[in-house]
């Protein structure tokens, strides 16, 4: 009697244990599926979130004013105009690069305004981000304080100001004809 009871109990327990392992397997599978789903969703979130913000951004192109136009610099001619005449015409420069005798007049020119909406907080946030480019009128003088070269240049956003000035100088030395040595 006891043995049969024990046998019955053990077989029942065996079944239960099988069921338990089955439940464990199923839960492990569902867990791994859930993890995969969460992983995919998180990926999707990082892709969609910037798209969502960009979707609510509206770039409005603007034609910003230049500090100096061609009319202002029309009278400045190489080998003719002197330093004092340049100052009379344009005013004092922002930078004087003493080593290379270069006057720099700087200004920021508005290119566009990005109007956007961020779905954050209770009411959301509206912002306007001005996109500007740094421009400069550069005038180089010769040893006699006469204009050697004049030009307008735009500073690339990730270039230091020093490199920008050196690049402009290098471009000039490439383009301007060198005097022939006799």
């Amino acid at each position: 009697m006891a043995t049969s009871l024990l046998h019955g109990w053990s077989s029942e327990m065996g079944k239960k244990m099988e069921c338990f392992t089955l439940v464990q397997d199923i839960s492990a599978k569902t867990k791994s599926r859930r993890r995969k789903d969460i992983f995919l969703l998180s990926r999707l979130f990082w892709v969609l979130w910037p798209l969502l913000i960009l979707h609510a951004c509206l770039p409005v192109p603007m034609s910003g004013r230049d500090r100096f136009t061609e009319k202002d610099t029309f009278n400045i001619r190489p080998e003719v105009t002197s330093k004092s005449q340049v100052i009379n015409c344009l005013g004092e420069p922002d930078i004087f690069w003493e080593t290379e005798r270069i006057y720099v007049y700087k200004w920021d020119r508005l290119q566009a305004v990005v109007i956007g909406f961020i779905p954050a907080g209770y009411t959301g946030q509206i912002f306007a981000l001005p996109l500007e480019e740094q421009k400069a009128l550069l005038i180089q003088f010769n040893e006699n304080d006469r204009v050697k070269r004049i030009g307008t240049a735009t500073r690339p956003p990730f270039k230091s100001y020093g490199d920008f000035l050196v690049d402009w100088l290098d471009q000039g030395s490439k383009t301007t004809p060198q005097p022939k040595k006799e």
Partner: peptide
């Protein structure tokens, strides 16, 4: 005061 004076490093 006035224009910034720079020299080539």
């Amino acid at each position: 005061e006035g224009p910034l004076i720079l020299r080539t490093p």
